[in-house]
Design a protein around this nucleic acid. Structure first.
Lengths: 208, 208
DNA sequence: ACCTGAACACCGTTCAAGT
DNA sequence: ACCTGAACACCGTTCAAGT
């Protein structure tokens, strides 16, 4: 008679993931202020002390949420690149730019948390650290390919990838933090900003 | 006998500014977590309720702190530009880049607060909004000058200024949020990153 | 006008206790 | 092993009261 255990004595088979999901939802709905541990627990249907069975403290839960954020962002970047011809570097760059910027706009609070290295010591959370490095890797791959086929100037890949990432990160963050409002109101203006960024970058890195 | 009033009944002639200064110090020392209203009041030597005479709530104090941060950042950018020949656009760009990035590195928590438009509704704080716009204005000035003398391509100034700002903002934020660690360890590598960014941008915007 | 002290609601964290 | 309920320290905010 134990074959359909809908009601376990312990509410979750996987409370850890339920807490992460609840956190992601609260973050999306109400921002960082809404990401409070007691509310997360309530949403997951357990007492406010239960999360401490799965996370050392609030930071650890946030780290897990951020990790999930990186998975989603990288997946989005990967998917966007896959849509474009592998050797059309400009198209690859634009695709990755739009993916990055749109992800930020759709998940502003998550994005903000993910890039709050000042608050969360990424070194203390190896899984998070690994996940976050995949973002940089995406940029490195595009730059490397561009250099191989000669559309991007030679030079240390890391530096160029850093410049590329920085530009896209800056656009994304300034948009979601509401700092460039007049120039990025509406989807067309945002796309235009992304295009202008990629054009400048592509030309600056020796493209064309 | 009231001519040397060292001990006023109300501790401050200017509690408002004392609170802002205390907040800036706490932020610099212990990060956002240390920026708590009761601690700020304690540091300024008043009761925890006193700040509410000068600020509607914690957000309002943070807005005032951010405003001061923008003044300092803009002043720094202005001073850096003033050191370089007015018509050497590349030098102007590099100076502004180094000023921006170094300010961020020296004031990471303040920088973070300043650009947290998601948390603080800048529209609700007109002085803050005005102060923040001065940053963008610095970029606009350089781009405009570059276009006038022909070293930067024509096109809407706002867009180009946005790209410039985005790149520098991205570099600064990724550095302080500890996301590009291997490539920006030590002052030389940071200067190199700034140089590479400006070179890419300058070339991308038609310079040389 | 400006500040204080008590009070309230709420949060992160701990811990003895339950199954 | 996993979860609960009470408890502690602390924070943002309010308010009646003091000078």
């Amino acid at each position: 008679m134990r074959n359909h255990e809908e009601q376990r004595s312990y509410h979750h088979g996987d409370l850890r993931n339920a807490l992460i999901r609840a956190g992601l939802e609260l973050l999306a709905e109400g921002g960082a202020a809404a990401l409070d541990l007691r509310k997360v627990a309530r949403k997951a249907g357990v007492s406010h002390a239960a999360p401490y069975r799965h996370f050392a403290d609030k930071q650890a839960l946030i780290a897990a949420i951020n990790e999930e954020g990186y998975y989603r962002l990288v997946e989005r970047m990967r998917a966007a690149r896959a849509q474009e011809p592998n050797d059309d570097i400009f198209a690859q760059l634009l695709a990755i730019a739009l993916a990055y910027i749109h992800f930020a706009i759709e998940n502003p609070w998550l994005m903000r948390e993910m890039f709050s290295g000042l608050t969360v010591e990424r070194e203390s959370y190896p899984d998070l650290y690994e996940a976050s490095k995949q973002v940089f890797k995406q940029y490195v791959e595009v730059i490397t390919r561009g250099q191989q086929q000669g559309s991007i100037i030679q030079g240390e890949v890391g530096g160029l990838a850093g410049v590329l990432w920085s530009l896209l990160h800056g656009v994304a963050m300034l948009i979601i933090e509401n700092q460039m409002s007049p120039y990025v109101e509406g989807p067309e203006k945002i796309e235009h900003m992304a295009l202008l960024s990629v054009q400048t970058l592509y030309r600056g890195m020796g493209g064309r």
